[in-house]
Amino acid sequence: MQSRSLELLVGFFVSLGIAAVFVLTFRVASLDSVGDSGSSYKITAKFENTGSLSRGASVKMSGVRIGRVRDIGIDPETFQAVVTMEIDGARNNIPNDSSLKILTAGLLGEQYVGVEAGGDPEPLKDGSEVLFTQSALVLENLIGQFLTSFTQKEPAAAKDAPKADAADPAAAPAAAP
């Protein structure tokens, strides 16, 4: 009798522990499939640059998660990144000409794939490739672009400067009264 209740308690403990491992792996970590419906389909897209997009990242449409990134690879011919995404089976009417963007959640957040719906009545199917994509914004490139445009504009700005000074006196009296 005593040993039976002991075995029961130990059994409870071990199953609770194993349940915790499963909860952590499937509920908390990203090993589960997308929706509760269970069914899902895969689409691919090529990007020039995926930034810090990683496996398991969300695929969102209008801010709502509809899937997740399954795999990121390289196209051996074009050297573009090939992103494979798994989309919730319930979202089976996404237009074929929709476009994908790699976006960042907030200033410091994780990167995700945003879907912008197109107008084609033909929906995306399993194995479809999305053709319209926009790469991740890479901060270094952005700063680089900003700097080059700044240096290009500098001579123009220098030429503009006297003109602005000249305009000032004219503007000042007008503002004074």
């Binding site: 491992v21 952590l24 792996t25 509920r27 908390v28 970590a29 990203s30 090993l31 496996r55 398991g56 990242a57 969300s58 998660r65 994780e110 995700y112």
Partner: peptide
Amino acid sequence: YWSQINQAMHGRDIADML
């Protein structure tokens, strides 16, 4: 709360914990 956890954590983290 949950989806951000889902995105940031991987099976690897759980394995490391174990």
